[in-house]
Design a protein around this nucleic acid. Sequence first.
RNA 1: GGAGCAUUAGCUCAGCUGGUAGAGCAACUGACUCUUAAUCAGUGGGUCGUCGGUUCAAAUCCGCCAUGCUCCA
Length: 515
Amino acid sequence: MIDELKLNSTQEQRLQVIEDLRKEGIDPYGQRYDRTHSSEQAKAEFEKAEAQAAEKEHFTTAPMKLAGRIAAKRDQGKTAFVHITDQAGKIQVYIRKDVIGEEAFALLKRLYAGDIIGVEGPAFRTKTGEISIRAEKIVILSKSINPPPEKFHGLTDVEMRYRQRYVDLMSNPEVRETFLKRSQIMQSIREYMGSQGYLEVETPMMHTVAGGAAARPFITHHNALDMELYLRIAPELYLKRLLVGGFERVYEINRNFRNEGISIKHNPEFTMMEVYQAYGDMETMMDLSEEVICHAAKKFFPDLKVVHQEKELNFTRPWRRVSMLDLVREVTGCNELTYSCSRELAAEQAKKLHVPIEKNDSAAKIIVKIFEEKIEATLMDPTFVFGYPKETSPLAKGSKDDPAKVDRFELFIYGREIGNAFSELNDSEDQLARFENQISQREAGDDEAHQMDTDYVNALRYGMPPAGGLGLGIDRIVMLLTDSASIRDVILFPTMRKRVAGAAEETAGETEEQK
RNA sequence: GGAGCAUUAGCUCAGCUGGUAGAGCAACUGACUCUUAAUCAGUGGGUCGUCGGUUCAAAUCCGCCAUGCUCCA
């Protein structure tokens, strides 16, 4: 057998029981089981019926059918208490030999924590007041070979929690809760977007040109067409093609892939919502950001005071809107700073604040670095920072008041970038020039500079309405609303290094191949 | 890319200045008809992440590597 799947003695014992059951004609893996109640429904129904009952003492309901995984077993001789968990929660099952019969009671001996069973019987209250099911019938729905994690602490080893999320989910209810909330957040975002007339669309995940953002892509190969394809780093350029086509409000919620480092706030594949609205602009997108995020946040924090990592964040609208130049001027105390000021002036301010810069950084880049280094982490309550330098935003429309600036904002919450938006550049020839400028930056060694997308320029030549566009980091929003410290806690199966089973020899064989 | 920390039974963890391994839960055997981290008595379970070094002797000291977490770039 494959080494990794070799059974230890506990597993061998459990497997032996499974074989014994089969010999006795008992199916250890069960069949369809038509439940009448979840654990939650059973408790709710009992409470309701009990409240209406004339005689509350020893009150029992009609029999119910429930199913779930055995979380704990307390065997007491001729009776036993078993807790079973289902998706909704858990419920206690009370098993008496004189109720269930000798044979079924004997079967109980061979049921372990981790096994999945079906239970039939009326609900009642135990002496201690816990609503329980008095079992009249028990069926095995699935035996388990692997014992579940320790019942009190659950699974805490973070590596195992991420690699074997199924174990994490079965033993840690708060993890189930987080992903349940994630689903509710997604639903509430879609609900809001739909209510405002935005059309949900799906654009390609495999791109011939990886555009729409500054990031390194994953490269793959299509055999039949014999060509390189890139997993998308952003859907932006496709969504704007749809505006050219005549759709006026579109959005997409899906995965982006960026071939970059992994951290507490970065996973190589992450979920982003992008929205485009014809005839709108940057400010339209500020309003939309507030509305859609608050719509989701209200479900968990009705007063919009979001508690995250022991800090209270005030989501009450309107959110602060402040220009990047104002913020940087304030922190440096230098009012002469502009994106087109002398490089020396900007460099001097950076040096004063101990912000490291590169030799060929422009004044604009230095100002952004001062912002990132000194201000970003301090923006706790939701804050829109607007007015970005043109040179780092090749898809955004220029500002009317300053040719070096574009109408772009980023949204920060808890010191983290949550969203990015701009008034979309719809002048095809300006776009062409911006792409050409990006190409020279790429040639100068910036491998995150945008690639040329000639078809996109062609699309713009047909005319695209002025528009506002927005990208929101869904995982990061989920982190905020579920009080999760790491992005890995809100992604069911985060990206992990390939686990090498018999480490030594396998890696020796592999390293050559990989080079 | 750099730094710090971690890796011991299925799970949660002890293990001091080096003397070849412990607990609780889980499992197994038995007792127990309202328990809930049930209780009580007993049993089995380990290549101490890998490879190497120092040493009479390494879970423990040193080094490489692997994996993970955190911080920094």
